[in-house]
Nucleic acid binder design. Structure first.
Lengths: 186, 186, 186, 186
DNA sequence: AATGAATGAGGATTCATTCAT
DNA sequence: TATGAATGAATCCTCATTCAT
């Protein structure tokens, strides 16, 4: 009946449920039931529950790695930094559910083996929009720029307004923040 | 053996473990073992596991409510807003582990009955540092100001530097953000 | 505050709850809460949970024993038998909740130490309304007479009609049954 | 190891234990141990403990429903009523342990979701052996007829005599009772 | 005459995982 | 490419009971 797309369908449903209810509160039974297969079927495609999450992370980590690699080769100009934010914003938008899952399940993700990897990348990324020897406040601005976009995606849900507009505004503020950090805002 | 402090001790250990490992991954058995009491003893003091968390939240919600009440009565000047941030920063610092728990277990907290309450308060607080009819970017700044302090407490752990200094810098940036929002930063 | 009547109050509440929900599904916590005392208070008055039931049974067993003793001394006439039924009917009416409890919790009562006693008394009573060497059908009639009154109290709840009238009718039928058994109904 | 008969085996053992010790005093651990499987295995076959009982009831409810349906279509003659009793007697005999369980665990069965259903059927059945507008005593006779057979199966255990003979006698008395009710026994 | 604090044993249930087919 | 059947370990929670005060 279902062809070779089962693996993909598992990932889709899993992500949906993980994002919605959290990792621990989503059981393999639940995933299987939604797909109308048995739990055992899941094990044909993934070695463990954690394996499913890991596979999901690939989708997020690869673009992130590419972004980091690209950024590392650019001159550290304001334009580059702006472009980094723009691209991160893009990744965020495209993989929104996954980021949401990450964001809301940090305690879980933290000891999920890939948790560390992800955090490292965020740190790395925040470094790439910083300047060495920046005053602390400006370093905070750079980190905050990243977080502002996260906030723009998740917390701003609870604030009224057009989602698209809110995301754009978040990007704008983020860019503003690194600009200030970059120029040593008088 | 142990006197009337058991309830408090449960809360302490619970908070510690919840913050460290997450809510779901902390079992009552674990809490009980650390305290060298039986699981049943926990149930003498708290009706359910959720009840323990709820009791913890009281410590956070009360100061927050006081802050909100106070803020609602002040004139909406920049000084007031700055003071709100300062006080929130204080609350954050004092109840750091609890905020950390909240921050890292959002998926869990969300459907923990008090989850909604807490989020509502954050929304309310972000409104109190905003101006009505602000352009979206400035509204994002206000929300971001709050989040920056969160980031200052949790994500910045992974950035080197003196914790005290980082927190102060976070507050500074937050104040800066609402200042920009307030003055309609030319 | 409460004086020497606590013991009695415990029995009252316990009987009420036992009859309503069954013995196992009624916890001492529940009883204590209803009385607004602690569980420990129950243990001041009764050694165990079973002890509470046992104490309740006294109220039923004593009248029954008196009835049996009285019956054993009477001539085995139809009048006597009728009077036995009448008196049993009385006991049943007076201690309705307790009989209801017994009736609906036989599995529990059975291994409750006094369970056997009670059953023995019923058997004894059924013998007292029989004649030795009666054909089996007539012996069934005698047992059935007893059960008819039980049915009259409990199952007939679910049949419409005035309770008083139903109970009287049950007694009437019961008397009829032993009359048939006594006279060897042609 | 064991093939497709596990579900059936669970039902068998469960019924045996439920009838012997009562529903609440029979734990799933006990059932599992008797079958030499784990508790979890029970949950593969039944969603809850209650589900096991429900499944058992199917065996009793179906024949009962058929009997009721059949009876509803017959003319309300004495022959029909007699046949109803006879068939009920059959059902009772065949599913004796189940009826015994029901009989002795009424308090439990009552709020077991199917409890109501079963009682409704008994009421319905008692109506089918009655005549409309019968005097109360005769209505009691009809109910008593049903109960006599129950008594014949359970209470009469404690009376000596051949079980087969006792059951037959119970049926005989029951028939007698509805005959009296039917003919308006002068 | 009663409470506050606790225990130990056990309850039903759920979970991720396995493996023969 | 899956399923049916099962396991072992853990979960939260409840209960009757105890005892020092």
């Amino acid at each position: 009946m279902a062809r070779g797309n089962t693996r993909q369908r598992i990932q889709d449903v899993a992500l949906e449920l993980f994002a919605e209810q959290g990792y621990e509160k989503t059981s393999l039974r639940e995933i299987a039931e939604r797909l109308d297969v048995t739990k055992a079927a899941l094990y044909y495609h993934f070695k463990t529950k954690e394996d499913i999450v890991i596979s999901l992370f690939q989708d997020i980590v690869r673009p992130l790695d590419e972004l980091i690699a690209w950024a590392a080769e650019q001159p550290r100009t304001l334009e580059t930094k702006t472009e980094i934010l723009r691209r991160y914003h893009d990744a965020l938008t495209r993989a929104a559910p996954l980021f949401r899952f990450m964001h809301e399940n940090q305690a879980t993700v933290r000891d999920l083996s890939i948790g560390v990897d992800f955090k490292d990348r965020l740190v790395r990324l925040s470094e790439l929009v910083q300047e060495p020897d920046l005053p602390m406040a400006d370093r905070v601005r750079c980190v905050s720029a990243l977080f502002t976009m996260h906030a723009g995606m998740f917390f701003l849900q609870h604030v009224d307004g057009d989602p698209e507009e809110k995301r754009k505004a978040a990007l704008e503020v983020a860019v503003d923040l690194i600009t200030q950090a970059h120029t040593g805002h008088a």
